[in-house]
């Protein structure tokens, strides 16, 4: 972990502590909670895609498994939410392990399609297995989470809780990146042959990171179930998996902070767009929420074409460029004086 990351985590923590004092509207707090859940899933996905270089368009499936495990076990078997969440994680570990073994032998396009196929199957099952998942009508009355008897019954409480988990997840992920394991993963991304010639067990590493990223997704799903208190297959379709990839890619695939930025920006985008539509209405332009998908696609495309390393990297570099320019100007002036 480097100094920059400590500063980043400290800044994020401070921001999180302040936000509920600024945002008192429950609706916006809710949006920020969903943002946290997306961030959690994206941190995991970024470890897999940006660091180990393995694409997955199937992480929506792991979110779904986590959410359904929590929902089914708490409502039908009366388990405590924590036990259910733990069971969800264990289930996801098994599923990711057995899906990962054959899948991660594939590369590039094949891997992308295989994970997409897996996500579609999970979605189809969640719709079709009515007896188990409630089918399209879903599962209701999921209990709230409570910590040591302290119930998370308000949006502010859940806000702090969900972001605390994001920060914990971020802390673990950043530690991992700068460790021996993180270097092994980056080596796999750089060159699989060279990595294995240096003793990195690429098969095991790929499966481990796939499982780890699936755990992040699963916890995100469980939290979703316990926040919304109702789930149906709708939010867990293939489009959600694609959206996660979009968030990571827009923010910057090779940087965990980039993935976080992307997740935050794209989660807030619909709200921003609805603000914008009010504004545009003043000019006689009617903006409908139907256009959101189009805007998502356009942003993703533009970023991929012009800033392939993502917004975060672009921002970082332009700030650096401004500083360099300033330094050079200052230097130029002092030299001129001499």
């Amino acid at each position: 972990m480097k100094q920059k990351d400590y500063i980043g985590i400290a800044a994020l923590t401070t921001l999180i502590i302040i936000v509920p004092y600024l945002v008192t509207n429950d609706y916006y707090l809710g949006v920020l909670i969903f943002t946290a859940l997306n961030c959690l899933a994206c941190i995991g996905l970024c470890l897999l895609m940006g660091y180990a270089g393995q694409i997955s368009i199937g992480h929506g499936a792991f979110i779904a498994i986590g959410a359904y495990a929590s929902a089914i076990l708490t409502t039908k078997l009366g388990w405590s939410p924590w036990a259910a969440m733990g069971f969800g994680v264990v289930t996801v570990i098994f599923v990711a392990f057995f899906v990962g073994i054959p899948t991660l032998r594939l590369k590039g396009h094949y891997l992308a399609m295989a994970t997409l196929g897996f996500a579609s199957i999970v979605h189809i099952v969640s719709v079709a297995a009515v007896g188990f998942t409630g089918g399209p009508s879903g599962i209701m009355n999921i209990p709230r989470l409570s910590i040591f008897g302290f119930q998370l019954n308000s949006d502010v409480k859940f806000f702090y809780f969900s972001w605390a988990i994001v920060i914990a997840g971020l802390y673990l992920a950043v530690n991992l990146i700068y460790s021996r394991v993180g270097r092994g993963l980056k080596a796999i991304h750089g060159s699989q042959d060279a990595a294995s010639s240096l003793g990195v067990n690429i098969t095991v590493y790929k499966i481990k990171i796939f499982v780890l990223s699936a755990i992040y997704a699963s916890i995100s799903g469980s939290l979703y179930a316990h926040y919304v208190l109702y789930i149906d297959p709708g939010p867990f379709d293939v489009m959600h998996s694609v959206l996660l990839v979009t968030m990571v890619a827009v923010g910057g695939i090779h940087n965990i902070w980039g993935a976080l930025t992307g997740a935050i920006l794209l989660s807030l985008l619909p709200e921003f767009l609805s603000f914008l539509s009010d504004y545009l209405q003043g000019f006689g332009i009617r903006y409908k929420t139907d256009y959101d998908t189009l805007v998502y696609g356009a942003i993703l495309l533009l970023i991929m074409l012009f800033l392939p390393e993502g917004l975060f990297d672009g921002l970082y570099r332009s700030i650096k460029a401004v500083f360099n320019l300033k330094n050079r100007l200052m230097k130029g002036r002092s030299q001129g004086a001499v």
Partner: peptide, 18 residues
């Protein structure tokens, strides 16, 4: 990365106990 085999910390400890 070349020192990979001369060190042994695994994924769990790498992320939890830096």
């Amino acid at each position: 990365v070349g020192r990979h085999l001369r060190s042994r910390c695994g994924m769990f400890f790498s992320s939890v106990l830096p």
